[in-house]
Each structure stands twice: as C-alpha cells, then as structure tokens.
Nucleic acid binder design. Structure first.
Lengths: 136, 136
DNA sequence: AGAAACCCTGTAGCAGCTACAGGGTCAATA
DNA sequence: TATTGACCCTGTAGCTGCTACAGGGTTTCT
C-alpha cells in the first residue's frame, strides 16, 4: 500500500502553493491524480518527485513549455539526452542575451542619471530633457 | 492651423503599433484626441511628442506606472525634479538586482551543463540527475 | 453540534501588449 | 457607379505564471 496525501500536504512538502499545483495539472505538467470519495486529489511519491523537478526547473527560470520538454525527455530513459543538452544551451544563451540587454539599459540609465545631480525645477532637469532628446 | 493626422500615421512616425496607441489611451498615458466626423482619432504634434517620450521610457524598460509619474513630474515644469532623480535611482537599482539574479542563474545552469558533455541516454544524463538532486 | 480548517470548481486579475471579430469609412480604380 | 482595398472603430480574448477570490462541500477537532 502506497501512502497517499492531499493537496495541502503536497504543497507543504514541495513549498508550492496549492493553487499552483492545480494550475500545473490544468496545464498538463502534473498528471491528474486519483480522487478520494469526496473528490479530493490523492497524490503519491511519484507526484511529489515530479513536482520537485518542476519547481527546480522553475527556480532556474525555465518556462513551462521547456519543462514539458524536459519531462518528456526524462520519460524515455533509453532515449538520447542530446535534447536535454540542447535545451540547456538554448536557455543559457537566452539568459546571456537578457543579461547583456539589461546591462546596456543600466549604462544608458546611468548616463541619463548623470545629467542631473542637483535638485532643480522640472523644466531645467537634464534627465527629462535627455529622455525627450533620446540618445537611446 | 495645426496639422493633424490619423492613428496609422502616428504609428508610423513613432514606430508604435496602432493597437498599442489605443491601449495607452485606455490606460491614461495618452489623452483622448479629437475625433473626425467619422469618429477617427485626430492627433497633433503634442501627442506625437508625448508618445515618443513614452516609447523612450519603455525602451529603458520603465513600467507604465513609472512613466505616468514621469509625465506628471514633467507636467509641472516649475516643480522640483527631485522625484525624477529618485525614480531613476530606484529603477537603476531594480535593474542591478535583476542582473545579479540572472547572473546567479546563469552560473547555476553552467554548473548543471557541465554534468553532461557527451550524448548519453536520458537515464544516464548528469543534467537530469542534477536537476532531480537539486543543489539549486 | 458547531466551528475551523481543509478541499472543490470556476472565474478574474496582474503587465504590456497582440490579435482577432465584426463592423464602418474613404479613396481610387474599372 | 460599383467595387475593391486600405484604413479606422469598439470590444473581447489571448499570451505567461501564477494569485486571489467567490461560492460551495467535507473533514476534523472540541
């Protein structure tokens, strides 16, 4: 006999909100669990493990679609893991791009900020003029 | 006589999609323009300038609420520009935090990636195991 | 028995758009 | 003149990844 537990307990175990678990089920990331006679969801260890996997992927900023792919790859243990490697590479590349973008933004904002050090009136403020002129 | 133009022309001038312009109006970032007899929106130069300001702020990744504040500050040209400076400082700080987060993620992903260099079967893949074990 | 704590479904909200559907208007061409 | 095509209008739904209800049923504790 496997031990089963209700959604609140699964939420505690995994640090995932109850409503998020139901959301993952709706989105097809978690398979629909068994139901009790009162229609309560009954989970087992396999669900808990799968949910932890999902949460770790999310903490690595992967999207739900990417996670779906990883779960699918994981579900065929004798298949090649080339897809896993490729997915991670793409994800890392995406992150690097986003970081570069944000850094460029930060530099632009620092430049803009340097246009007004004192507190003047708005009409004299170098920042407002800088945005309006727009070297960005 | 001021020259006026329709929404499509404003979109071309500013590089902003027509539906985005209507969206900004709904959100109160752009004042409702005059209308032609056929109920078409009629814009003038002031609208175009304001929209360019908004677009430049967006390109600096500011949120619409932040932009609202800047527009309000700009609208009182004799008021102090201290609020502008503070807003920019907050925004720059937020960016710096987000960059740090993403860089930490990237390092974690690179670590994970290093667990599988060859193409193995999924069940042997160090990455899948790494996610499951979860040092993140 | 009654109240608190849990569970259910379904829907709406967040940001900042984008993409329709289903209509009206206008200019130019055949 | 009729019709095509390009434009405009409103209103609504979709995207991502949840979160927060409302309005009910169930279980558990006292």
């Amino acid at each position: 006999m496997e031990k089963t537990f209700k959604i609140g307990e699964l939420a505690l175990q995994t640090g995932c909100a109850v409503e998020t678990i139901r959301y993952y089920e709706r989105e097809g990331l978690l398979p629909p669990p068994a139901r009790s006679s009162a229609n309560y969801r009954l989970y087992d260890e396999a669900h808990a493990e799968r949910l932890m996997f999902i949460r770790r992927c999310r903490s690595l900023d992967m999207g739900l679609a990417e996670i779906q792919q990883l779960l699918a790859l994981r579900a065929t243990p004798d298949g090649s893991c080339g897809g896993v490697n490729a997915l991670l590479d793409r994800h890392i590349e995406g992150l690097a791009q986003r970081i570069a973008e944000l850094e460029s933004l930060r530099r632009q904002l620092l430049d803009l900020r340097s246009l007004c050090h004192e507190t003047l009136t708005a009409k004299e403020c170098g920042i407002l003029h800088g945005i309006t002129a727009g070297s960005a």
